[in-house]
Each structure stands twice: as C-alpha cells, then as structure tokens.
C-alpha cells in the first residue's frame, strides 16, 4: 500500500519535472529556418550535381578522356566529342573537343567518383539544392549548355 502512494507522489513529481523542461524550452530562441523565405549558405564542401569548369577563355577544361564516364557507378554521364583541326605553328593538328556532356541526375548518387577521377580538374560540385520538378527530363542536364549560359 505504501508503494502505491509513493508511486503516485514520485510519478507526479516526474511529470512536473518534465513539464518544467518543456516550459523552459518554450522560451528558448527559435532554431528553425523558414525555408522558402530564408535560406542558409551551403557549406564549402556541399555536393550538388557536377558542373563543368571553364578555362580562361571560357571553354570547358575537359579534354574528353572519358575517365568520369568510366568511373561512374550508375552510368549517368555521357560524353561526345568532335575532331577539330587547328593550326599550330603552321602544322595542322587534330584536337578532340567536347561537344556533349550530358548528366542524368535521376541516376546520380553524388558519390564524387567522377570529380576524383578527373585528372584535369575539369568538373566540380555545384551548390545547387533547389531541385524539384514534376518532369524527369528536368534532371537531364546539358552541362555544356549550362557552362555557356554561365559565361554570358
């Protein structure tokens, strides 16, 4: 019988302690960010989808070696190249130039294998996170076009 009443007493005390904690929490500063109106800056190492890096002339640094394409676990990168004849010191040289860099972001798992395997420092992670769409096609990025748009 004594246990019964001490249970009630201790129980009520534990409930009051709990209420005291929630009451104190009530006056603590708000930590929530009201997302669409407020945003936070992404950390420097945040991994968004990949983006091409341009050289000084605004052309992509990519030399179409295909390392990223081969390293990708999901096969979401597809490259295309054209052969361009350039004259260097009177000699005609053939050079591979990037004509297509398509990223299928629906398959990408942001592992970073492509960036790590690139020997020319030609791709980087973007800070893009506002990606939402009803269309699958919106996530098929033409990175070459995006680079040109950034240059303008």
């Amino acid at each position: 019988m004594g246990g019964y009443f001490s249970d009630i007493l201790n129980g009520s005390k534990s409930l009051l302690i709990g209420m005291g904690i929630t009451f104190r929490e009530f006056f603590k500063p708000v930590v929530t960010v009201q997302y669409p109106y407020q945003t936070i800056k992404m950390s420097a190492r945040f991994r968004g989808h990949i983006e091409l890096i341009a050289d000084e002339e605004g052309k992509p640094k990519c030399v179409v070696c295909g390392m990223c394409e081969r390293a990708c676990p999901s096969g979401c990168i597809s490259l295309g190249s054209i052969s361009v004849e350039t004259e260097v010191d009177g000699k005609v040289k053939k050079k591979k130039v990037l004509s297509k860099y398509d990223l299928d972001f629906t398959k990408c798992s942001l592992c970073g294998q492509c960036v790590e395997n690139c020997n020319f420092g030609a791709i980087e992670f973007s800070k893009e996170y506002n990606l939402a769409s009803r269309n699958k096609e919106d996530f098929h990025f033409n990175l070459l076009k995006r680079l040109e748009e950034r240059n303008v």
Binding site: A44, R45, F46, R47, L110, G112, E116
Partner: peptide
C-alpha cells in the same frame, strides 16, 4: 541537426555519405 551540419561540412552530404576511400578519406 548539429551533428548533420558538422558532417555535411566535412563529407558534403547530410545522410548518404560517401566519405571514406580505400586508404584514407575523401578530404
């Protein structure tokens, strides 16, 4: 959230990390 912020700052992801590499770390 504090932990995820810390991990995001080093790994670049909040949940599905790909941080360890054979022989070391990504960064």
């Amino acid at each position: 959230e504090y932990i995820l912020d810390m991990l995001e700052a080093v790994t670049g992801a909040r949940l599905t990390y790909c941080y360890y590499r054979f022989g070391g770390l990504y960064n």
